[in-house]
Design a protein around this nucleic acid. Sequence first.
DNA 1: CGTTCGATGCACT
DNA 2: GTGCATCGAACGT
Length: 202
Amino acid sequence: MILPRDFYARPTLEVARELLGKVLRHRSREGTTAGRIVEVEAYIGEDDPACHAAPGPTARNAPLYGPPGVAYVYLNYGLHYLVNAVTEERGSPAAVLIRALEPVEGLDLMRRRRARAKWRKGKPHPSDHELCRGPGNLTIALGITLAQNTRALTRPPLVIEDQGGAVETIEWTPRIGLRVGTQHPWRCTIAGHRSVSGPRAR
DNA sequence: CGTTCGATGCACT
DNA sequence: GTGCATCGAACGT
């Protein structure tokens, strides 16, 4: 079942927690890739210094002020695309950053995209649980670019699905990779999952 | 194990 | 001109 718009029109921390275990799926000309969400971060409003809405409305962050249930994609560090799900009511700028997936479909295509994006020397290819570990890596693996910015997540080709099934232990920690806003424990992960990014998990 | 640092593009001041 | 919601290679301990 594809998550409906109402799912996203709620407090961002609730949406973040409930996105764990859901499946992000992208159908492209090359094929379909999908992964189970295991790590997210919440970015909430103009008072959150790490949120792109902190400076107020601008051209880039306009999707955050729009309706919930759409993708907000942007280029980060001039190298990586990062994908968010816009939450809360129209006019209330907030979103959930998808940071890591457990690959579930189209692993071959993910491997080809990762290899194409980066083949420095004769490095070993990423193992399966590394294919979508990290927000920049998962957009490469799923073929998500600026072309998907502002696209609805409630209908194909880019959707988030509820496939049922149990979700393991959930853990809240401070967001990572930030210089501000680290006081909020707004990073939500499936504890101990191999595909979660950040300092080397064991 | 740990930390540092370069690549790279663009929104924003 | 400055500063990133990153990645991974290279180095130090």
